[in-house]
Amino acid sequence: MFDLTGRCALVTGASGGIGGAIAHALHGAGATVGLSGTREAPLQDLATALGARAHVLPCDLSDAAAVDALPKEAAEAMGSLDILVNNAGITRDQVFMRMSDDEWQSVLDVNLTATMRLCRGVMRPMMKARWGRIVNVSSIVGATGNAGQANYAASKAGVVGMTKSIAYEVATRGITANAVAPGFIATAMTDKLTDDQKGRLNDQIPMGRMGTPEEIAAAVLYLASPEAAYVTGTTLHVNGGMVML
């Protein structure tokens, strides 16, 4: 249904479960994809699996200079940069009263500040092209909060506020900025949970199961598509009904 032929997309956190699925979805719709992440080997594996139209662009998102350089590197590798998917994120969970400055700052740096830097870096080419799609991956906990995740929740709520502000500024230029807020998604991270833990989690979800990375990727694909031209500043919640906003 969605055709991204001729479009070039940069996906951060592409070595992870959700990022990989996003890259697959955009690539499957015809886009050229730039795969960014910290670990190069899984990115290479993903690029090999995708075949043509896939570029590996390693980047440490905690390194401000490297982040600032990434949009240009991506545009040079792919020929243009039409779609930015800020998917990369880290957690450093801690009870709030024990949360160190470093635990707070490192999560904010990667999840919010690096996202800001990349959004800023793609503005110029998108403004010139009069077309652009920014999709920032937030989280259900950005809306609900979560015990032990004050840093993560703050960063993900921050992403939503920033995305809306960007959407206001560039709406007349053919650029949309939206967020996708996943609920609990089955990835390598949730595989570590015991069956008991998984059961208790699933009890909180009306659909009775965790989501799949592909279900997040489908939401990103829609927001990146030409069909979503009139959708901007929104947050698309993909959480099996766990929270209905």
Partner: peptide, 9 residues
């Protein structure tokens, strides 16, 4: 304000 940014570009 966005026009002025684009003019400079």
């Amino acid at each position: 304000s966005l026009d002025t940014v684009e003019l400079v570009m």
